[in-house]
Design a protein around this nucleic acid. Structure first.
Lengths: 225, 225
DNA sequence: AGACAAATGTGAGCACCGCTCTCGCTTTTT
DNA sequence: AAAAAGCGAGAGCGGTGCTCACATTTGTCT
């Protein structure tokens, strides 16, 4: 156990992932080529398949890794706000970190939130890491609720059962209107970042980041008055 | 002029687009294959290039067409609301039509708002049709403003210059806070639809459409109180 | 009506892709 | 020391976008 081979294997897989990220950053996620990675490693193309059984498997590994990193930056941004009761600052920090992640590595953002790769179905392994960054928002909503803030929002009928389930199964102690508004904020943040990143704002406004600012400002006042 | 040849050419290009849509619906936008289209038409693969010089050119044609259709459904939904002063109903109708478009043809939605195809840069031809569906929202915002509603929203600094430009260049007579909030609503709607369509809600809530409902409800009260 | 040119389709070919399989070689386990 | 498992090489299959020389069809102009 823990022989030369194992260490070599870890090194090889790490190198594959590194080259995959490099290639993804340069050419986009859909252009990821196992053959090119093998070529860069001085290996014959079939050798890659000893480490990743298919292109989808490598994609899954990259996706999980990206979700973890996104979760990590969101958590770090939230934790960096010293005054924990400054909920607006925490929302701004969290959302800003998510946007910065997208700007820093657009290919990763596209991998996570862009068009699903055709024929690729996200396996179970991804759903855990995928929810990590959303938990930061849920935590914040909990703190807002605990501070006594109550939101006046008529929760849509279709959402009520889900919120009851979240309460019963996950022990979520946040009022339904707060969660519902929080999910709305989540959608708006994700939408603003994606619209900005995918270039849909260039023909509307000159400073694409302004839409993000507006979204965050709006929800800062809505969620943490 | 207007000879047999021209009609045959139109028929062929139409057939190509039809088959492309079919294929896209079945396998996703990124899996679109010129060879497969040629095969379906009983033509040798190189023949396609007489009609579309490249895969990207065909994609551009599909994108423009999809933008036009999205714009058309949004316009139709808005126009179908008889009481023009019922701004909430118009917002719901417009947003609902956009969501329905996405659900009906997810591959088209992915083509417009998903990951940009790697190496593909949207040419100038697309920006006109691309803005058509947003004009429906802008029109609505104008009617809301003209009805006397004033929104209390601090427009982000980065957005002010853009809104001034929209006013000066396009003659947009809508107060800045209204436009800013409207753009926020736009981001939220797009985000909710994309999150739902790309399957990012399945692990959060059971009824993915509920988030969309919440978003629309929220902005109905915010924009048209 | 006939000549000419443009439009159209053909088939071979290039370079790439994901992926499979077999064959030796090496490291690890028994 | 023998058996097993892991690994890289190489050939090969079927697919892709795209180019090019060639033949054929078709519309137009003299």
């Amino acid at each position: 156990m823990s022989g030369v081979r194992e260490r070599a294997r870890v090194a090889t897989t790490t190198e594959i992932v590194r080259l995959a990220r490099e290639q993804m950053a340069a050419e986009g996620a859909a252009a990821l080529s196992l053959r090119a990675i093998a070529r860069d490693m001085g290996m014959v193309s079939s050798g890659i398949y000893r480490y990743y059984a298919s292109r989808d498997e490598l994609l899954t590994a990259l996706i999980i890794d990206s979700y973890e990193r996104l979760g990590a930056v969101a958590e770090a941004a939230d934790q960096a706000v010293r005054r924990r009761s400054d909920h607006r600052a925490r929302l701004r920090a969290m959302a800003g970190a998510i946007r910065q992640f997208a700007i820093d590595s657009p290919s990763e953002w596209a991998l996570l939130f862009g068009t699903p790769v055709p024929g690729y179905a996200a396996p179970q392994d991804t759903i855990g890491p995928a929810t990590r960054y959303t938990l930061v928002l849920v935590e914040l909503l909990g703190d807002i609720a605990r501070s006594g803030v109550r939101h006046d929002f008529a929760v849509p009928r279709a959402m009520r059962a889900d919120l009851v389930r979240l309460h019963d199964v996950f022990g979520l102690e946040v009022p339904a209107p707060t969660i519902a508004l929080g999910l709305t904020a989540w959608a708006a943040i994700m939408g603003a970042v994606s619209l900005e990143l995918f270039g849909h704002l260039h023909n509307v406004i000159d400073q694409p980041g302004a839409l993000f600012d507006a979204v965050v400002d709006h929800y800062a006042t809505v969620l943490a008055p």
